[in-house]
Design a protein around this nucleic acid. Structure first.
Length: 783
DNA sequence: GACTAAAATT
């Protein structure tokens, strides 16, 4: 009989069982009458018929029904089920489950009602169907109670149902009612899993310890539970004690290490796992490895692993492909990410979103948008990523357009639009959109408030910041660390160090960002001593400083002129803290030494740098040379700056001004001519001052303006009074303003809306209402 | 060896 089959297809290399013909009947849609191969055909047919009772046919169909159900092909599953000449209880149960998987509870119920006989498994399947439906746990429970006989799966399923609804009381009640003689690990496992998912490690431990028999799942669950609570040592102890460990156990432990940033342990365990007999790395393990490589910038390991995957012919599942795309995007290798994307036979939303995100991060918004338009289906993430892309490029109009078109807007989408305004310095829009968001009853999250606090800080409008602070308290977010850090930053940028410090000391567990922000706050407001004290305190509290801490401390030293201390701190970076000073640290030191007139030391330091000095270093030297009228060094610094940033006007302007001040008009003109011949444009210097909650903007403009001298005089008076009031004259903002308005700097031209400004400033200076510096902010920025 | 239940991932 089997040999006849060979006539059907020459592709058959070895005899197939009758299953083959049965499969053919369905998959090639051969109807019985269309089998016209006469004698041969009828033999096949009759044999198929007689073999229908053969369990192999039925098993095959049952498997097909299950698989189609899982893949969402409910029509296929139905068609096979309906055409089955003989059905077993398993077939009926498989069909029931297929309907349940596709959320068709009424059909599932129909099948359950119609089936000729029911086993415990059929009941179990129906309970699962109810559980999956969302709000039918009670129906499930009714069925469960009506069962004359139950097995471990019945109990496990019922517990899962209640656990997924968060009804742990009922779950526990059923768990405790499990017959003691066969309380299988799976019953405890589902409960442990439930407790761990809601973060109740204590309860999970309780159940775990009460277990008489534990299996590899119970232990793997507990390993995961300990890892996720940060108790990695206990997790490892449990892991080491395990007699049996499978892929999941290994993967869980590796994931635990990698998520906490313990790369050596994680990668080490991974190579141990690869050597372990009987355990095979799977796509989940690899997904975790790729994620860690991307997250911790392990380029070499990432590439190596990708090579290994390609070499071993490992099948790309969607998760794995997506994690590789994300990794390459993090490395900035968008081409490689694209290649992986193209290679993937199956792609999902995450694949598209990850690649779009990659292009957005590379500022290739157009490319991102092409993909966005091409993708078959879009979700909130796709829209939000695109909005972020356009905002990041300053195309706020396009961002808003997309936001308007977005079908459902969540808090994240609103936040992205708002923070887009903030990063584009459109503070008013940010606040007005925030009002809209509140009116639409969308609940802001901590990120929304953080970016609005940063808006308040950058626009130095304290009252807005205070309102956001109030909002945070109202929403019970005032204990959120990122909010607290933003508050510290906001208050200190608005010149309100007292409130900044108030917030800072209220932080229960300040992190390195909190300390850095407060140190910068002290430094920028002239409290150098306090900044240094806090630096000491942070260490006595066991908080490791990072490179940014040192920038803050060094700038504090610069502000209060603590040259020796600054020098010591700088030297200690490497020797005490094993932190290699970066370009910005060197700039800070050059600034510190240069301002003090210690040019030999400054130049020596530049020569001792282990890398080529960047523009910041030369800029600092140029600034200091200007202050101390050191033409020789200014020339050197300006030359270097021109080399590094040929389009920047600053070195030309500073140098020519210096020559002018020294009365060397000829040289000054020469520099100006040089600049002109290179067609370099200086972007206008800009300064602003807030008094009485109004922002007054000064742009450098026409030199010939008749009032410029008057404004300078007025400002000089203000500055003098500030000096008398012992305002911090080392504050860079303030010195810059002094420079600008007193004509000692690159901006020697005054703004046009002058008369009103002058009148206002006169009034302000006379009535001493310019406490804007302390309370509202006085700063200078070069756009 | 099919159906029902339990663990790790972008």
């Amino acid at each position: 009989m089997v040999s006849h089959g060979l006539h059907f297809s020459t592709m058959l290399t070895k005899p197939k069982s009758s299953l083959y013909y049965f499969h053919l009947l369905f998959s090639l849609k051969f109807s019985i009458s269309s089998l016209h191969t006469a004698t041969k055909g009828s033999i096949v047919l009759s044999s198929a018929k007689t073999r229908c009772r053969n369990s192999k046919f039925i098993v095959h169909c049952n498997t097909q029904i299950t698989q189609h159900g899982r893949n969402g092909n409910i029509k296929e599953a139905e068609s096979i089920f309906n055409r089955m000449p003989f059905k077993t209880t398993v077939s009926w149960t498989a069909m029931l489950t297929a309907y349940a998987e596709n959320r068709n509870i009424s059909k599932a119920r129909e099948v359950f009602a119609k089936m000729p006989e029911r086993t415990i498994s059929s009941y179990n399947a129906m309970i699962t169907a109810y559980n999956k439906n969302g709000c039918m746990v009670d129906e499930a429970y009714e069925l469960f109670c009506n069962m004359s006989e139950r097995d471990a799966v019945s109990y496990a399923t019922m517990i899962t149902g209640y656990v997924s609804k968060g009804r742990f009381d009922k779950a526990l009640e059923i768990y405790e009612s499990t017959p003691g003689e066969w309380r299988e690990p799976v019953c405890s496992n589902v409960l442990i899993n439930g407790y761990l998912k809601v973060g109740r490690l204590d309860m999970a431990i309780g159940i775990f310890e009460g277990m008489v028999r534990r299996d590899v799942v119970s232990l793997s669950l507990m390993v995961d539970g300990y890892c996720k609570s940060g108790r990695i040592m206990e997790a490892r102890k449990l892991f080491d004690e395990m007699v049996e460990r499978n892929v999941v156990t290994w993967t869980t432990m590796i994931n635990g290490y990698l998520k906490m940033g313990y790369l050596i342990d994680g990668f080490g365990l991974f190579s141990m796992m690869r050597k372990e007999k009987g355990v095979l790395v799977n796509s989940t393990t690899l997904t975790i490895i790729f994620e860690a490589c991307g997250h911790f910038d392990r380029y070499r390991e990432g590439i190596q692993m990708h090579g290994l995957v390609l070499k071993s012919g490992f099948e790309f599942c969607v998760f794995l492909g997506n994690s590789i795309i994300t990794m390459y995007c993090r490395f900035g290798c968008i081409g490689a990410a694209n290649l992986v994307f193209d290679m993937m036979t199956r792609k999902d939303l995450v694949s598209w979103n990850s690649l779009i995100m990659g292009y957005v991060q590379e500022n290739e918004t157009e490319k991102a948008y092409e993909l966005f338009e091409k993708m078959p289906r879009k979700d909130v993430v796709s829209w939000t990523t695109m909005i972020m892309g356009f905002s990041g490029e300053g195309q706020t109009d396009k961002a808003i357009e997309l936001f308007t078109m977005m079908p459902e807007k969540d808090d994240v989408a609103w936040t992205v639009v708002i923070s887009g305004f903030v990063s584009n310095e459109m503070y008013e829009e940010a606040f007005s959109w925030f009002t809209d968001m509140l009116q639409k009853s969308v609940k802001p999250n901590s990120l929304t408030l953080s970016s609005l606090l940063s808006a308040s800080a950058n626009s130095a409008i304290l009252s807005n910041g205070q309102q956001i602070h109030a909002q945070a308290i109202k929403m019970c977010l005032e204990l959120d660390l990122s909010i607290q850090n933003s508050l510290v930053s906001m208050y200190s940028k608005c010149g309100n160090v007292v409130d900044a410090n108030q917030v800072f000391i209220s932080i229960a567990e300040p992190n390195v960002v909190s300390f850095n922000t407060m140190i910068v706050g002290f430094a920028q407001n002239g409290f150098g001593e306090e900044a240094l004290n806090l630096f000491g305190k942070m260490q006595s509290e066991g908080q490791e400083p990072n490179p940014i801490t040192f920038l803050a401390v060094l700038s504090a030293c610069t502000h209060v002129g603590l040259i020796e201390v600054g020098w010591e701190v700088f030297k200690s970076m490497k020797s005490l803290y094993n932190i290699e000073p970066g370009p910005d640290h060197y700039s800070c030191m050059v600034d510190l030494l240069g301002r003090a007139g210690l040019f030999d030391k400054a130049v020596d330091l530049i020569h001792s740098m282990p890398f080529d000095p960047h523009s910041g270093v030369w800029g600092a030297l140029l600034g200091a040379s200007m202050t101390h009228l050191r033409v020789d060094l200014a020339k050197l610094a300006a030359q270097q700056l021109i080399k590094l940033e040929p389009d920047s006007a600053t070195p030309y302007v500073v140098l020519s001004n210096l020559y002018t001040i020294l009365g060397k008009k000829k040289e000054g003109d020469k520099v100006r001519m040089d600049k002109k011949s290179k067609r370099i444009q200086k972007s206008p210097g800009c300064s602003w001052l807030i008094v009485k909650d109004k922002v007054h903007l000064f742009l450098s403009g026409d030199q010939s303006h008749k009032d410029s001298e008057e404004i300078r005089v007025t400002l000089r008076t203000i500055m003098k009074e500030m000096e008398e009031q012992a305002c911090d004259l080392f504050n860079p903002d303030l010195t810059l303003v002094l420079d600008v308005f007193c004509g000692f700097s690159n901006v020697n031209k005054m703004p046009s809306p002058s008369l009103a400004t002058v009148a206002f400033l006169k009034d302000a200076s006379l009535n001493k209402k310019y406490d804007g510096y302390k309370n509202s902010g006085l700063a200078l920025s070069f756009p």
